[in-house]
Structure formats: C-alpha cells, structure tokens
C-alpha cells in the first residue's frame, strides 16, 4: 500500500455523475405524472386481455418501439467505461473524474460511403505523474473494443496538459502492436480483469 500515488483523491457522489435523464418524466409518462398510481392497476389484471390481439397503440413505450432507434451516443460510451474500477482505489473512474462526459466525442463517418465512426476518449489522470495512466487507458480501450460494434474506431488518449508524459502515453495507447502485446501479458491482463470486474 506504500506506493499509492494519490492517497486522498477527490470523490464525486454518484448522483452528480452524468446519467441518461428523460427530458421530463411528466411529459414522458402516459399518466402525465410520475406513475405513482400505476401500481394500483395490476399488470396482469384488467384491462389485459390475452384473447385480444395486442393493439399497436397499447405499447406506447418508446423502449419497445423499433421505429425510434437509440443511436450510440457519448453518454452510452460514458456508461460503458465510467464503471471501470481504478487500479489504486476501490472507486470507479467516473467518481474519480478520470472519465468525463464532455471528453467523449463520437466522430461520424468522414464520407457518406464509409461506415466507420470514431470514438475519442480523453482521460484525466488524478495526479499529473500518475504512473498507472497507461494501464487505465488500456482498460478503457479493451472495454470499448469488447463492447462496441466493429464499425467504431477507438481512440483513447490522455487529455493534453493533465499528465507529465501525456503524449508518450497517448502514443503507446494508439500503437496497435503495443496494445496487442500488452493484452498478451498475463500480469497485465489479470490487472485489467480486476478493473473490468465491476462493469457488468
């Protein structure tokens, strides 16, 4: 425990972390309220009738309507990586502000013919000399490679000015061969596995 590089990091409360909020529940919910009275109508009782074919209007829920797609956005990327555990503390990258929503960008395909989009993530290490920045970056990269469809290119960097060797670390993270070699390293993989444990 002696080699902890930042023993007293700033911690954000979970309610302050960005999350997907509906525009307004009162306009969203069919009753125009918060749905408090919904429990009064049992899910399987009246007026559910198994003999009638379900009318399309019955399910007004957006979640069940394929007509309205939810595209992959920055918040979704944030949700995927903010739950990764910091290798030093039992805290998430989100609550330590290593991962921040404004630092996630999705760059759409450069030409109409291409399907390839790019996800760019800028990381903010908790201290400028954090030696674990590369490991954190690798964790984010591996998580995104597993969780995103192949039409996304993944670009993980250290936010300029937040780390003494930001450029060097960013270059390492961008180097495909080095990343591939790192993933073969058993000690490193065990560390990554521990970091990613909390993600499911």
């Amino acid at each position: 425990m002696d080699d902890i590089q930042n023993s007293n990091p700033t911690v954000l409360p979970s309610s302050d972390l960005p999350s997907r909020r509906p525009a307004s529940p009162t306009t969203h919910h069919p009753s125009r309220g918060t749905g408090l009275f919904d429990s009064l109508v049992p899910a399987y009782g009246y007026p559910y009738d198994p003999f009638l074919p379900k009318s399309p209007s019955a399910s007004s829920d957006d979640e069940d309507d394929d007509e309205i797609p939810d595209p992959i956005d920055a918040q979704e990327i944030y949700d995927l990586i903010s739950t990764i555990t910091d290798p030093e503390h039992p805290l998430s990258l989100g609550s330590l502000s290593v991962v921040n929503l404004p630092d996630i960008t999705i760059i759409p395909p450069s030409s109409p013919a291409s399907r390839i989009s790019t996800v760019q993530v800028l990381l903010t290490p908790t201290v400028t000399h954090c030696g674990l920045a590369t490991v954190i970056g690798l964790g984010v990269r591996v998580r995104l490679e597993r969780a995103l469809p192949p039409r996304f290119r993944i670009d993980v960097r250290i936010k300029p000015g937040t780390h003494s060797t930001a450029e060097q670390v960013s270059r390492q993270l961008g180097d495909k061969e080095r990343v591939a070699a790192a993933v073969e390293n058993a000690t490193l993989m065990a560390m990554l596995k521990k970091m990613l444990e909390g993600c499911d």
Binding site: N8, P9, L12, P13, H89
Partner: peptide
C-alpha cells in the same frame, strides 16, 4: 479539502 475521501 471537502469533498475528498478523507473529508468523508
């Protein structure tokens, strides 16, 4: 230094 781990 609130909010930090130690202030908590």
């Amino acid at each position: 230094d609130t909010p930090t781990k130690q202030s908590q």
